[in-house]
Amino acid sequence: MSVILVVYWQGYGGDLASNLLAEAIGICITVFILDVIISFEGERRNYKLSRLAFAQICGQLERLAELVAEQQKSASGTALSPVRWDELFTEEIANTICASLDPDSPCSTIYERPTNWQAHNTMFADRLRGELDAIIDKYLAYIPEDLINNLEHLKKSAIFEMYRVSKSLRASQERRGEKFQYLRGLQYFYMEMFNLCFVIRQQLIKNGVEMPE
């Protein structure tokens, strides 16, 4: 009987073991290939979503650059052409805007509704914060942490806070009979915001995003 079992194992049993081993190897290879495909698809999806996030962040920076360019134009009476970041986000531009931008002069730069500069800047700051919040909330998992931190700092820039409180500050000063000095002396706040924009721009470039000069 034992001889028969040995013969069976060496014959049919050996074939069965080989078949089981081959099937197990085939399953492992299939699982490995599926893992690679799933991983590739996941990485491709993450890449696409990160590109979408970066594109929207770029859009907000471009709107901010447009705002500063139009503020400079209104304050100085001359326009920069073409507008370059290294020529726009400078101490000279900050000084010009803070010294000469008239809060009551008409403006319809970014948004369709015509208004004055004081109201427009307040609206811009609120919209920028809302847009950046929406981008961060939607793409949180696809934006590098250091970039998120700098976007949070940009949202809270002191110059944007000054835009927001300027109306109440003006009312308070006028009640006391004081002359309203809209952005006078706030060059440091502008430069702080400019520097943050440059840092964010470099982070985007580091992540493969093409940015305007």
Rank of each mutant, 00 (worst) to 15 (best):
W9V: 12
Q10V: 10
L80H: 02
L49Y: 05
A17R: 13
E43G: 11
H120R: 04
L169R: 07
Y8S: 13
S108E: 12
F160M: 04
G14C: 09
G208P: 09
T122R: 06
A55D: 13
Y190I: 00
A53T: 04
E23I: 07
A53I: 01
R164M: 07
M211Q: 14
S168G: 10
L5H: 14
S74E: 03
W117K: 03
L34A: 15
L140T: 07
L132K: 02
E145N: 05
V83Y: 07
I37A: 15
R113W: 05
E62R: 06
D15H: 08
E152K: 05
V83R: 02
C58G: 09
S172E: 15
I27D: 14
T96F: 05
S100N: 13
W9H: 14
S166F: 04
S81L: 11
I57D: 04
F180I: 06
E41S: 15
T90I: 05
M123T: 09
V6Y: 14
M191N: 03
S168C: 14
E70I: 00
A75N: 00
T122E: 11
V7W: 12
L52E: 09
L52Q: 09
R44D: 12
N195F: 05
A24N: 11
F189G: 02
S2H: 14
S172Y: 15
C197S: 06
I205T: 11
Q181E: 15
I135P: 00
M1K: 14
I27N: 13
L49C: 03
A134L: 07
A53G: 05
S168D: 15
G130E: 11
D15F: 08
G130S: 11
G130T: 03
I200Q: 00
M193N: 08
A158D: 11
E92N: 08
R175N: 13
S74T: 02
T96Q: 10
E192V: 00
G208R: 10
V3Q: 15
A53Y: 01
V6T: 14
S76I: 01
N116Y: 06
Y142E: 13
I200N: 04
A94T: 04
Q71G: 01
K155R: 07
M191H: 01
E145C: 08
E70L: 01
R184I: 11
F180Q: 09
L186A: 07
P114N: 10
I143N: 04
A24M: 13
G185Y: 11
E210W: 05
L140H: 12
Y139C: 00
L186W: 07
T109K: 03
F180W: 12
L169F: 10
D133N: 08
E145L: 02
L61I: 04
L140W: 05
V6K: 15
V83A: 06
A94S: 09
I38H: 08
G77Y: 03
R51E: 12
N46R: 11
V6M: 11
E174W: 02
S157D: 04
I110K: 01
P103I: 06
I205S: 10
V7D: 14
D137N: 09
R176S: 14
I205L: 12
Q203V: 07
L21A: 15
